[in-house]
Write a protein that binds this DNA or RNA. Structure first.
Lengths: 241, 241
DNA sequence: GGCCGTTTCAAACGGCCGTTTGACACGACG
DNA sequence: CGTCGTGTCAAACGGCCGTTTGAAACGGCC
């Protein structure tokens, strides 16, 4: 029997990258499967079928199914590490909050990025032993950034209330990912999807700023007039900045 | 072999309610199991073990596992039908919104009621063929009630924006149920649970009212003051900037 | 060529799953 | 008492699961 590796971090495959290619196909297929059906319900036969390799490849390259799952999560962490826009303290806090929400929502919904986000947010609902790492690496840092902006916008807030505002933002965003099957039934299959990320981000940001009593900092003119008289055309110009 | 019933709606058990008792135990154990682990991962052996009966009882009383699941959902619908407070149009819309949010959050988190809510909200994330019914019977009516209050509070809102405000409320509430495992890790196992329902409801209601630009309608005095004139004796004196 | 470590494969293993089977216990009723 | 319908049971069935096995294929190297 060949030497098992069972872990990542190796290189110099004498076989000319053939093994690395199998590994990559397996990782991609597993990402799709875990995103679509979760850890428990995605089967290694299904993953290997999609990757075009034998079931034994999972134990050979990743040790076992849980190792494959961990590798999928790790790849998601690495891919997302550079994603969120670096915070620029010189800009207005309201705009920075909006941009952070937009980046988070994009990660949750945009077609090229949503797979890893699905795997990670599924952990929140259906935890595996990897939940702790997801919380520490992905959830808590995001929570911290939003919370810092909330406190910057309203320094007088009690910590516990800043937490509630923060979780409100995260909860609204995650809902558009988690509840997708139900939203498809409620609003039609294409409503409130990736194409609506700018609109959703604008709304969530305006919502939390309003809840903080900082209507003055709406990063964008609200799409609806509140006390004015002229009805807005549907595609009003007023792009941001 | 005995005549299968496989459906509910029967009565007149000659065996003196013994069958009905088994049915009830099965239903209770299945509710716990489906709430805790979902349809796919809860096994009929586990359910029947907890109910103290044989595995064949599932197929005898409910046809199959999916029938048992449908019966659990149905019982939840019936139990919750009388739960939400009837809307009283003579009261201020802000208070009615707060009460509705409080009732919804209570259903999601309160110990005696959360099991059915878990089964139903899990459908949003991990749909089974019963999702359609959950959406039509539970999700859409709640959405309609919140949306009507939102439009009453801000009649000038475009319908699409009223939807976003509505989903923001639901998303925040559902998050406290869905993300519980992650919240346990983030804030400690007892934070933001059933005991905090009044505080959470107050926050969510104040948040959406603020987002609607109706700070004037906060249903309860907010735990922190932001632009007011009288300091609040609440807990610690509210720190002012 | 012969060799060897690496990688892939078909096949099988044990285990849990949902479901079915056929027998048995029990109260009702003629 | 004998029969019947009802409800429960232990046991088994076929199927999918994750994992392992042992051999075959591959590719660089002498």
């Amino acid at each position: 029997m060949g030497g098992r590796r069972g872990d990542q971090g190796d290189q110099a495959a004498p076989g000319g990258g053939r093994a690395a290619a199998t590994r990559a196909r397996l990782l991609a297929a597993a990402t799709r499967a875990f995103a679509a059906r979760g850890f428990a319900r995605a089967s290694v036969r299904e993953v290997c079928g999609a990757a075009g390799c034998n079931v034994a490849a999972v134990s050979y390259h990743f040790g076992d199914k849980a190792g494959l799952y961990r590798a999928v999560l790790l790849a998601g962490f690495e891919r997302d590490a550079a994603l969120p826009p670096p915070d620029d303290p010189s800009r207005p806090a309201g705009e920075r909050l909006h941009d952070l929400v937009a980046a988070f929502l994009g990660r949750l919904l945009a077609p090229e990025r949503h797979l890893h986000a699905r795997v990670m947010t599924r952990e929140l609902v259906e935890p595996t032993p990897a939940l702790r790492e997801v919380v520490e690496v992905a959830f808590r840092p995001l929570h911290g950034r939003i919370r810092a902006l909330v406190r910057e916008l309203r320094p007088d807030l009690r910590p516990a209330d800043a937490d509630l505002h923060t979780l409100g933002v995260i909860g609204q965003c995650v809902f558009y990912r988690h509840a997708r099957p139900a939203l498809d039934l409620l609003h039609g299959p294409d409503a409130l999807g990736a194409a609506d990320v700018p609109r959703l981000a604008r709304h969530v940001a305006a919502q939390v700023l309003g809840g903080l009593g900082r209507h003055d900092l709406l990063p964008l003119p609200p799409p609806q007039g509140h006390s004015d008289d002229h009805p807005r055309p549907r595609r009003a110009a007023a792009r941001r900045r």
